[in-house]
């Protein structure tokens, strides 16, 4: 089984100069927890997730820690978020996001998702253009049904 067999053929994405506020609005409307960022020709140039927004909203020394459970109080977070809302997504996005190719095996993408604890992985063609996404829930469901290891 290949990535293209299990990916969502959905190329919902943002360009680099869209604001973080707009990112939050669209994720909520769409029900996604992260969105790929593309250039004018649909080349993948980044990924922004909810957790990256949270990290960027708290003071720098805290974001160095592995876990965000150390945040002293949510007031700090809310203030921090307010100060980045109008910044472009390019400022806080992951510029070298984990990605997979459409003809990688499904097992490979399972590996990638589990090892990096990701919820969404962008799928690209050999031109680095976005062609879809793989969601973690889809992998879980395939694995639970025992479909994943059959190649």
């Amino acid at each position: 089984m290949r990535v293209e067999d299990i990916m969502l053929k959905d190329v919902t994405s943002l360009v680099v100069d869209v604001t973080i506020e707009r990112f939050i609005t669209l994720c909520e409307r769409h029900g996604y927890s992260a969105l790929p960022i593309v250039d004018k020709e649909f080349h993948l140039v980044g990924l922004l997730s909810e957790s990256m927004v949270i990290k960027a909203s708290i003071p720098g020394y805290l974001s160095l820690m592995q876990s965000t459970s150390f945040i002293p109080d949510s007031q700090q977070f809310i203030k921090g978020l307010g100060s980045i809302l109008h910044k472009p997504v390019s400022e806080i996005m992951e510029k070298n996001p984990t990605k997979v190719y459409y003809d990688d095996t499904a097992l490979h993408v399972a590996d990638v998702i589990i090892k990096n604890s990701l919820k969404i992985v962008p799928v690209v063609d050999y031109d680095n253009r976005l062609v879809g996404i793989v969601r973690r829930i889809k992998l879980l469901s395939l694995a639970a049904k025992g479909i994943l290891e059959e190649s």
Binding site: L8, K9, D10, V11, T12, L26, R29, H30, V131, G132
Partner: peptide
């Protein structure tokens, strides 16, 4: 998205 020949590209309002 169930249709494997169609790539979706929608803006949510």
């Amino acid at each position: 998205l169930e249709d494997r020949n169609i790539t979706s590209n929608f803006i949510f309002v």
